[in-house]
Every structure is written in C-alpha cells, then in structure tokens.
C-alpha cells in the first residue's frame, strides 16, 4: 500500500505534500512517515493518507480559451493606477489613499 504524506512546517501553515511511503498497513505507514518526514524536527505535524483516498482531478475544460475566467484576464494593476491618477487630478474628488 502506498500512503501519501503531507507535512506542516510550522503551526498554522498549510500542509504541503512531502512524499510517499510504502507500508503494509496504517500503523506501519505512520511509523515510517514519522521516520522519513518528522524525525529531524522538520515538521510540526503530518497527514498520512492512503493513496486511494486522494481524488485526482486533471480534466479542466477550457475549449474556448475564455481568459476572462482567469484573474489575469483583468489587468487590475493598470486600472488601479489610472483610477489613482484621475483621483489626484480632481480636487475634492475621491481619494485613492496613499497605498
């Protein structure tokens, strides 16, 4: 059985995939994960998950290249810049703040 191991480097941080271990059962998997990914103080916590429990999704339909679905479809930085310029030019207008 293959178990996928995720590790958390510091408390509060997101768990990231660390690697996998081969083990006959959950108990062995936990011991091996501890040994491979936790023994040197490199993790505050581990998640040990049987590989079958992980559902992989890799079919993302984007037939028409609708790039407006993506955040980079909107050049927000430029828009913001223009808005700030306008605001600065119009006395008494909206203040865009100092950011």
């Amino acid at each position: 059985m293959i178990y996928e191991v995720f590790r958390q480097e510091r408390k509060g941080q997101a768990f990231a995939h660390a690697g996998s271990v081969e083990a006959p059962n959950e108990e062995f998997a936990e011991a091996y994960a501890r040994e491979q990914y936790g023994r040197r103080g490199e993790s505050t916590a581990l998640w040990v998950v049987p590989r079958q429990a992980v559902h992989e999704i890799d079919d993302f339909a984007d037939e028409l290249q609708k790039n407006y679905h993506r955040v980079d479809g909107y050049p927000l930085k430029e828009k913001l810049g223009r808005a700030r310029e306008l605001a600065a030019k119009s006395p008494g207008g909206l203040s865009a703040g100092a950011g």
Partner: peptide, 11 residues
C-alpha cells in the same frame, strides 16, 4: 526488507 524499514531500523 523494505526501503522504509531500512530507514526506520537504521535510525
């Protein structure tokens, strides 16, 4: 007998 066990037992 197993790579993982190799690491565990050596440790």
């Amino acid at each position: 007998p197993l790579l993982e066990e190799d690491v565990a037992f050596s440790s």
